[in-house]
Design a protein around this nucleic acid. Structure first.
Lengths: 187, 187
DNA sequence: GTAATTATTTATCATAAGATAAATTAAAGC
DNA sequence: GCTTTAATTTATCTTATGATAAATAATTAC
């Protein structure tokens, strides 16, 4: 939990009081490899901070498992399309290693915004950053070849290949597992 | 400007004082068709609200004009990758019809957040919504065919075809103009 | 450790979309 | 209105990726 608080404080000032208020609604979560942290169909009501491990958000498109995103240590994980709309999520959160997280009930967290505007500000910055990343990723998917996307991914996350099955990487890149295998063979 | 204030109030409560503070830093902008509201290379320091007209954000990828997004009446337009990072934007904002907008200096607007947390909250909700839309659009680009994306776009924006050159629609869909023409011919 | 399961690769064929060029149509400038 | 320019369509060829199936490699369960 201390890691979460450190992470948040890097994004903006937090009074001791505000920090305590967050700590008071945070709980540690330990979960073993390949377990789902959140199931498909649940409405997202939890904000996670990944302290140790790797996670992914995935969903099914025509019965095929699609990885929407990978998450690494020191990152916030939410199913935004559900958290911000209140609708049940079509997506699940799964850890790909034994993982340690901090979980915060989103409604309790949002309630803190009224008392502690700096908390709301930090959350806003988190979302802004995630938004910019998504814009950039969309551009990459639209105009880079699958091979370029693969090279770029493993360059920015060299450990991914050791830790994540290729089939998850393939769907993240927007291609089939067979295509990814072909791309790797041509290197 | 009144339209902007009405738009913002739909997203959350705003005191008369907060409303006045926004009005005080808002200025009307009239711009004629095909003019750029913001140029490539400028850092985004303006938040626009489109009252009347159509706009797009575009950039060049290998010297090819790519439309990142279309914007219609009653919507906020910002170049998020620049506004939230402080870096110069690779993107431009252009209007595709004679348009009427309200412009707000972003640093003045962000300064209001300290005095009026409800303004920050409304802005946060705007970004959250834009983020969710981008997530959904990414999914669509990744897993729907170009034809499906085209059908879906004209269904949700029937007037687009009358007002926007097809070449802009093509790059928005992530395909060449020639491909779009082929898709249209097969209908 | 062995069997069963799952992941990955390889091969073949089909297809959507890119690249390029040329023809046609529409719009803009004078 | 006529000319020039730009937009759109059509045609041809190429290529990256999908679909499917089968072979191989790696992992998991017992």
């Amino acid at each position: 939990m201390e890691k979460l608080l450190t992470f948040l404080r890097k994004l903006g000032p937090l009074s001791a009081e505000a920090t305590d208020a967050i700590a008071a609604i945070s709980r540690p979560v330990n979960i073993s490899r390949y377990k789902n942290l959140q199931q498909i169909g649940q409405t997202c009501q939890t904000i996670y901070f990944l302290e140790q491990g790797i996670a992914r958000i995935y969903y099914y498109k025509n019965d095929i498992d699609i990885t929407e995103g990978f998450y690494f240590e020191q990152s916030i994980i939410v199913r935004a399309e559900s958290l911000f709309t209140g609708k049940p999520s079509r997506k699940a959160i799964q850890v790909l290693e034994d993982s340690v997280l901090t979980a915060i009930d989103s409604s309790k967290f949002f309630a803190l915004f009224n008392t502690y505007p700096p908390i709301e500000r930090i959350f806003r910055k988190i979302i802004e950053t995630a938004y910019v990343e998504t814009i950039n990723r969309m551009e990459s998917i639209q105009f880079n070849t699958a091979e370029e996307r693969y090279q770029s991914l493993i360059k920015s996350n060299p450990h991914l290949l050791k830790k994540v099955p290729l089939k998850y990487i393939a769907s993240y890149l927007g291609i089939t597992q067979v295509s990814l295998s072909r791309i790797r063979a041509n290197q």
